[in-house]
């Protein structure tokens, strides 16, 4: 993400609300916040699929910033995941960040949601002193002036491999002006659905990607809706 240098003097919010299904993790976060003189507030209960009720409860805490765990299903807090919560809060421009373990099972899930989730931090890297920066990243995003790492540019996406299995397709792609030599998995959910069946290795897609992202997990894909077939590229 961003170093302290870019936002040197941003005060962290005074109240922060935590959404986490695991009571141990929740208590731990709350203690960390208290250590930095931030008043923690928590949302607890069983929400099932009622995301509106959860959002209402979060807003009722009155905190200017929300920390939300990604996997809320494990201990049955909700049947949806944290990125849906961040997305819903974002609709009303409520700053919020996602905490995750970045387990392999949810990395791709996160990539799909990443365009609507400004701040994702792994639990290991979480640093309370950076909360001000995280909040600022959200604020800039809501003000339509995203930080460099979150700014989308129309970009070529090269198809390097396609793995079609029983019930899903996996695409390995490179982004020439991000890291031309690193193939990453692009979830098909990020691509205009009519393009998926015609994709072949060697084709290029065009889409909006935040090529200023430092890490693979920070990349997002939007409007991937144009294709350039391999045989349209001269010299290949």
């Amino acid at each position: 993400m961003l170093g302290t240098v870019e936002f040197p003097d941003i005060e962290p919010p005074r109240f922060v609300t935590i959404v986490d299904d695991d009571p141990e993790d929740r208590e731990d976060l709350m203690d960390q916040l208290r250590d930095h003189n931030i008043e923690p507030r928590a949302v607890d209960g069983r929400y099932g699929s009622d995301i509106d009720r959860l959002i209402a409860d979060v807003r009722a805490t009155g905190s200017p910033f929300v920390i939300c765990d990604h996997r809320l299903q494990i201990k049955n807090l909700a049947s949806f995941n944290g990125s849906s919560v961040i997305k819903a809060l974002g609709l009303s421009k409520h700053p919020a960040m996602l905490l995750t373990m970045y387990q392999s099972t949810n990395r791709l899930e996160l990539r799909e949601a990443r365009a609507d989730v400004p701040v994702v931090v792994s639990r290991h890297d979480f640093d309370v002193s950076q909360l001000g920066t995280y909040a600022e990243i959200c604020r800039r995003e809501f003000a339509n002036d995203p930080v460099d790492a979150r700014r989308a540019h129309r970009t070529l996406i090269g198809i390097k491999g396609i793995n079609r299995t029983y019930n899903h397709t996996e695409l390995y792609v490179t982004i020439p002006n991000w890291r031309p030599d690193d193939a990453i998995i692009l979830p098909v959910a990020c691509i205009a659905s009519d393009l998926v069946p015609q994709l072949e290795v060697g084709d290029y897609l065009l889409g909006d990607v935040n090529v200023g992202a430092k890490e693979e997990d920070d990349l997002f894909f939007k409007n991937v809706n144009e294709i350039m077939k391999a045989n349209e590229v001269t010299g290949s």
Binding site: L156, M228, T234, G235
Partner: peptide
């Protein structure tokens, strides 16, 4: 190189 082909693709996009 791969990057040269990527450049060709980008040129094709711009030309198109």
């Amino acid at each position: 190189t791969k990057i040269w082909r990527d450049l060709l693709a980008a040129v094709s996009v711009a030309e198109r």
